[in-house]
Design a protein around this nucleic acid. Structure first.
Length: 878
DNA sequence: GTTTTCACG
DNA sequence: ACGTACGTGAAAACC
C-alpha cells in the first residue's frame, strides 16, 4: 500500500466553508462558521484517508507571477468580507495548534504549490489527494493523484472525487486537456478571459476532438460550428494567453518538504483549547484521549466513609465559602460535591449509611453554617434546602447570564473559560461516548469528576463574577432583582396552575372532529390525499397542481405561511380551509394534547420559568410554554377556559397597559409622546392624529390601526420594509409613515439614533436598570446583519426595561402577599401580565397589591397603568 | 438535527 | 443588490 499525502487548498476550502455553513459567532462575537466548516471537512478527510502526510497551502495576497504578466485582468474578484477575513488568521492558528503544516509562497498561488507538491508526492511513490473547491485543479489528476471537491449542503459535507477516469466521464476530456477547455471557455472567477463566443459546450467539443488549442488552431478550418471556428481564428492569441493563465505551475520553489508534513499529535491540549474557544461543542469529543490529563483532579477526592464525612462536616462552621453541586439521578440525590478550599474538593456519593436523606440534612447544615454557598441555579437547588438562605446563596449561572445573556448555556465549563481563565473538561468530555455506551454515565469516576469540577468552579467563580458585575454596574441588578426574583419564580413553579383535564380532553375531541371534516373537504378539492401540514406538499399542490398565483419565497420552495395564504383567501376559498386546518391542528397538537401531558397528579401544571435564556432579560417559559396560550381567536381562547383557580379561589389578572411605549416616552423624553400619555389620550389615535395631520376626533379606524402598527414598529426598531410587510403597503408609503412619525415625535427619533450610536460605540445596549445586551452584529460588514444589530439596539433597551420593571413588580407583589399573610399566589407571568390565584376573601387585597406594586415598580415620566380583572378561569380574567 | 409554521408578548 | 420587523417555545415534516 502506498502512503497517502493530502494537500489542501486553504483559501478555497475556507471560502467554501464560509458560504456553505450558516453564519454564526461564538459568544465573544467572533465569526467562526468558516473555521467550523473547514475543520469538518478536514476531519472527514483524515477519517477517510488516514494520510501519513498532510499540508495546507494558502495564497499570499500579492500579485502572483501568472497574473503579474496580465495585470489588466486582475481586480474583478470581490474583496473578502470582513466576517471571512477575520477567520483567516484564526484558521492558521488553529492549524498550527493541530500541528498541521501550512505553506504559502510569495509570488505564487496556492494552486501552484499544490501542483508542485502533488507532482513531487507522486514521484516519491505516494498516493495523493488534493482537496479544493476549485475545479481548476482537475488538471492535476493522474493515476496516483485524485482531486476531491467537498460540498457542504444542509450541514453535511459530501465529497466529489475526480481521478483521470472520472474527469473524462464528467467532462469528456482528460485532465491535461481540461486546461485547454478552460483556455477556450474562460473563467471569470479566475480572471481568465478565454475566447469570446466560445462557451463550455463549444470548448469541450473542440478539445475532445483536437486535444489542444494549438492542434485545434491548426485544423481550425475543420471546425464545424461557424461561430466557434471564427472565434478561435480571430482570438487565438487570447486562447494562448488564457492557457498560460490556466496552467498550474508544477515546479515552483516550495520551501516545505513532504517529510515535514507528517501528520501527528493533532488532538493536543492547545488545539482543544482553541476548539473550546470557538465553542465547537460537537468537536470536543475528538479530543477524548487527552481530556483525561488534568491538573485539578488530584485535588478531587471521593469520600464514601461515613466517619470521614461526619468528621469533614464537623469542621464546616469555620467555613467562609463553599462551592456546592447536587448530583441528581432521576430527580433523586445521588451524591453531592463540595469545595471548601482551593485544594479540598469532595464528592460524597450516596452509599451505605450515607443516604439521600442524610445528605439532604448535611446540605442544610452546610448552608446554615457557611457564610456563602455558590451554586449554579438557585431555583433548581431550592427544593433540597429547608433552612433559611437569605443572602447566602450565590447563583453563578445568573451572574454569568447577566454578564453575557447571549450564551445558550452557563455550565461550569463555560464559566471557567470565560471568567477563571482556565479550561476544564465539559460534560461531553467527561462522559465521552455516552451516547453509544450508557455505562459511562454510571461510572463513579466520571460522576465524581463531573460533580467535583462543578463545585470547584462554583467555589472559584464567586469573586471574579461579583467583581465583573460590580465593574459593569450590574451588581444591584443581580442582588436586588435577579436573586429575589429567582425565589419568586421558585414559588410559582412549585405552586403550578390548575388545569381541568376533562374539559381539555373534550376540547381535544371537538377539535379532532373538526380536523376530520376539514381533512375530507381538503382531500376532495385537491383530488387526492396528502400531508396538509407539509409545506412542501402543500406548496406543490397549491402553486403547481392547482395553479394558484404566488412564487417562491423560501430556500427550499414555496412559502405557504399564513400571510401568503391570507392574501389568496378572498379568491380561493380552498386556502381558507387550509388555514382553518392549520389552526385547528395547531390547537390540538400543541395545546389540547400537549398540555394534557403536563398535568401532574395534583391536577396542576408546574411549568418552568427560565431566567437565563433571553437576550433582553425577559423570562421564558418551557415544559410547557405557558406564555403562548392562545388568546387572539375565539376557538383558541377556549384553551384559556381550562386554566382555573382551585376550590375557594378566583383568578385576579393584572396587565400593564402599553408598557413598552410608556418606557419609550420616558427614555426618549419626547414632549409629544409624554403629553399624550399625561392627557390620557388613546395613544394610537393620538399618534394617528399627529402623523396623518387630522384633528383627534376625525381619525378614522384605519388611520388608528395604521398608527398602531407604526407604534409597534418603532418599538421593534423600525424599518420601512418591515412596516410595509405588516401593513401590506409599499415601501415608499411605509417610509412616509415613518418620516411623518419622526416629525411628530422628534424626541423619539433622536433617542433611537442615540441608542444605535451608543450601542455601536460600546458594543452593547443598556436598560434603565443597567442590564446589558451585547450586539456583535453592529460590527458586521454584512448589511443585513448590521441592520439587524441596529434594530436590536433600538428594541433591547425598551423590551429589557419592561422586563426589569415586571421583575421588580413580581418581587414586590410576592413580598406583599407574604407580608400581609395572604395565601393567594402568583401562578403565571406573561411578560406584561401577572395571574394570581386568589382566595375569595383576599380578592380586594390582592387587587390592591397587584395594582400598587406594578404601578410603582418604576418611577417614569409617564405613569404606568395597570388593568386588573377577576374571573373564574383565565379567559374570563383576561 | 434542521426547516417551517404558528402560538404568545 | 442585499432581504427583515423585536423577543420567545413547540410540533410536524423531512432528511
Amino acid at each position: 500500500m502506498r502512503d497517502k499525502l493530502v494537500l489542501i487548498d486553504g483559501h478555497s476550502i475556507l471560502n467554501r466553508a464560509f458560504y456553505g455553513v450558516p453564519d454564526f459567532t461564538n459568544s465573544e462575537g467572533t465569526h467562526t462558521n468558516a473555521i467550523f466548516g473547514f475543520l469538518n471537512i478536514l476531519f472527514k478527510i483524515i477519517d477517510e484517508e488516514n494520510p501519513k502526510y498532510l499540508c495546507v497551502a494558502f495564497d499570499v495576497h500579492q500579485p502572483t507571477f501568472r497574473h503579474e504578466m496580465y495585470k489588466e485582468y486582475k481586480g474583478t474578484r470581490k474583496p473578502m468580507l470582513p466576517e471571512l477575513k477575520q477567520q483567516v488568521p484564526l484558521m492558521k492558528e488553529m492549524l498550527k495548534a493541530l500541528n498541521i503544516k501550512t505553506t504559502e509562497l510569495a509570488g505564487f498561488e496556492a494552486d501552484d504549490i499544490l501542483g508542485t507538491l502533488s507532482k513531487a508526492g507522486e514521484e516519491q511513490g505516494l498516493e495523493v489527494s488534493v482537496i479544493s473547491g476549485d475545479r481548476d485543479l482537475l488538471q492535476l489528476a493522474t493515476e496516483h493523484v485524485k482531486i476531491r471537491i467537498p460540498k457542504t449542503k444542509k450541514g453535511k459535507t459530501e465529497i466529489e472525487d475526480y481521478n483521470v477516469t472520472q474527469v473524462l466521464e464528467k467532462y469528456s476530456v482528460t485532465p491535461k486537456e481540461f486546461i485547454d477547455v478552460k483556455a477556450l471557455m474562460g473563467d471569470s472567477s479566475d480572471n481568465i478571459p478565454g475566447v469570446p463566443g466560445i462557451g463550455e459546450k463549444g470548448a469541450t467539443t473542440i478539445i475532445s476532438e483536437y486535444g489542444s488549442i494549438e492542434n485545434a488552431f491548426e485544423h481550425a478550418d475543420d471546425i464545424k460550428n461557424k461561430r466557434n471556428r471564427e472565434a478561435l481564428k480571430e482570438h487565438f492569441d487570447m486562447a494562448q494567453m488564457s492557457k498560460t493563465l490556466a496552467t498550474i505551475n508544477t515546479s515552483v520553489p516550495v520551501e516545505v518538504k513532504i517529510s515535514d508534513c507528517v501528520l501527528e499529535d493533532m488532538f493536543n491540549k492547545e488545539a482543544l483549547a482553541m476548539v473550546k474557544k470557538f465553542e465547537f461543542k460537537s468537536m470536543i469529543s475528538k479530543f477524548d484521549s487527552i481530556s483525561t490529563e488534568n491538573t485539578f483532579e488530584e485535588n478531587f477526592k471521593i469520600m464514601e466513609d461515613f466517619g470521614e464525612v461526619e468528621n469533614l462536616l464537623s469542621e464546616i462552621q469555620k467555613l467562609k465559602k463553599v462551592g456546592l453541586f447536587i448530583d441528581l439521578n432521576n430527580d433523586e440525590i445521588r451524591g453531592i460535591s463540595i469545595t471548601i478550599s482551593d485544594d479540598e474538593t469532595y464528592y460524597i456519593p450516596v452509599s451505605g449509611f450515607i443516604t439521600g436523606e442524610y445528605l439532604k440534612e448535611k446540605l442544610n447544615y452546610i448552608v446554615s453554617n457557611a457564610v456563602e454557598v455558590s451554586v449554579n441555579d438557585i431555583k433548581s437547588n431550592l427544593r433540597f434546602v429547608e433552612t433559611e438562605t437569605e443572602n447566602k446563596l450565590f447563583d453563578a449561572g445568573i451572574a454569568a447570564y447577566l454578564l453575557n445573556p447571549l450564551k445558550s448555556t452557563y455550565e461550569y465549563d463555560d464559566i471557567a473559560r470565560d471568567y477563571l481563565e482556565f479550561e476544564v473538561p465539559a460534560y461531553d468530555e467527561i462522559f465521552a461516548n455516552y451516547k453509544k455506551d450508557k455505562s459511562v454515565l454510571e461510572n463513579i469516576d466520571n460522576i465524581s469528576k463531573y460533580a467535583s469540577y462543578n463545585s470547584y468552579v462554583l467555589y472559584k467563580s464567586i469573586e471574579p463574577l461579583k467583581e465583573k458585575l460590580e465593574n459593569e454596574g450590574m451588581i444591584d441588578l443581580y442582588e436586588k432583582i435577579e436573586v429575589p426574583l429567582t425565589y419568586a419564580l421558585y414559588d410559582m413553579e412549585k405552586t403550578g396552575i390548575k388545569v381541568e383535564a376533562d374539559s381539555l380532553k373534550e376540547y381535544g375531541d371537538k377539535l379532532a372532529e373538526s380536523i376530520k371534516t376539514l381533512e375530507e373537504e381538503i382531500y376532495k378539492e385537491a383530488g387526492h390525499e396528502f400531508k396538509i401540514n407539509s409545506p412542501k406538499q402543500l406548496g406543490e399542490i397549491l402553486f403547481n397542481e392547482m395553479g394558484l398565483p404566488g412564487g417562491k419565497k423560501t430556500k427550499t420552495g414555496y412559502s405557504t405561511s399564513a400571510d401568503v395564504l391570507e392574501k389568496l383567501k378572498p379568491d380561493y376559498p380552498f386556502v381558507e380551509k387550509i388555514l382553518s386546518y392549520r389552526q385547528v391542528t395547531k390547537l390540538k397538537s400543541t395545546y389540547a394534547d400537549g398540555l394534557a401531558g403536563f398535568i401532574e397528579e395534583d391536577g396542576r401544571i408546574h411549568g418552568k420559568f427560565n431566567q437565563t435564556i433571553t437576550a433582553t432579560g425577559r423570562i421564558s417559559s418551557t415544559d410547557p410554554n405557558l406564555q403562548n396560550i392562545p388568546v387572539r381567536t375565539a376557538l383558541g381562547r377556549e384553551v384559556r377556559k381550562v386554566f382555573v383557580p382551585k376550590e375557594g379561589c378566583v383568578f385576579v389578572d393584572a396587565d400593564y397597559s402599553q408598557i413598552e411605549l410608556r418606557i419609550l416616552a420616558h427614555m426618549s423624553d419626547d414632549e409629544n409622546l409624554i403629553n399624550a400619555y399625561k392627557e390620557a389620550k388613546d395613544i394610537h389615535q393620538s399618534t394617528a392624529s399627529l402623523v396623518f395631520n387630522v384633528p383627534l376626533d376625525e381619525v378614522t379606524k384605519e388611520q388608528r390601526s395604521n398608527a398602531k402598527a407604526v407604534n409597534f414598529g418603532i418599538v421593534y426598531g423600525i424599518s420601512s420594509f418591515g412596516l410595509s410587510q405588516d401593513l401590506s403597503i409599499s415601501r415608499k408609503e411605509a417610509d412616509k409613515y415613518i418620516k411623518d412619525y419622526f416629525v411628530s415625535y422628534p424626541g423619539v427619533k433622536k433617542y433611537l439614533d442615540d441608542a444605535v450610536e451608543s450601542a455601536k460605540e460600546k458594543g452593547y445596549s443598556v436598560t434603565l436598570f443597567g442590564r446589558r445586551r451585547p450586539i456583535p452584529e453592529l460590527k458586521s460588514g454584512n448589511f443585513m446583519q448590521k441592520s439587524f444589530g441596529e434594530r436590536v439596539a433600538m428594541n433591547a433597551p425598551i423590551q429589557g426595561t419592561a422586563a426589569d420593571i415586571m421583575k421588580i413588580a413580581m418581587i414586590n407583589v410576592d413580598k406583599a402577599l407574604k407580608e400581609q399573610n395572604l395565601k393567594s399566589k402568583i401562578v403565571l407571568q406573561v411578560h406584561d401580565e401577572l395571574l394570581v390565584e386568589a382566595y375569595k376573601d383576599e380578592v380586594e387585597q390582592v387587587k390592591q397589591i397587584l395594582v400598587d406594586n406594578m404601578k410603582n415598580a418604576a418611577d417614569l415620566r409617564v405613569a404606568l397603568e395597570v388593568e386588573v380583572e377577576v374571573g373564574n378561569n383565565w379567559n374570563e380574567a383576561h
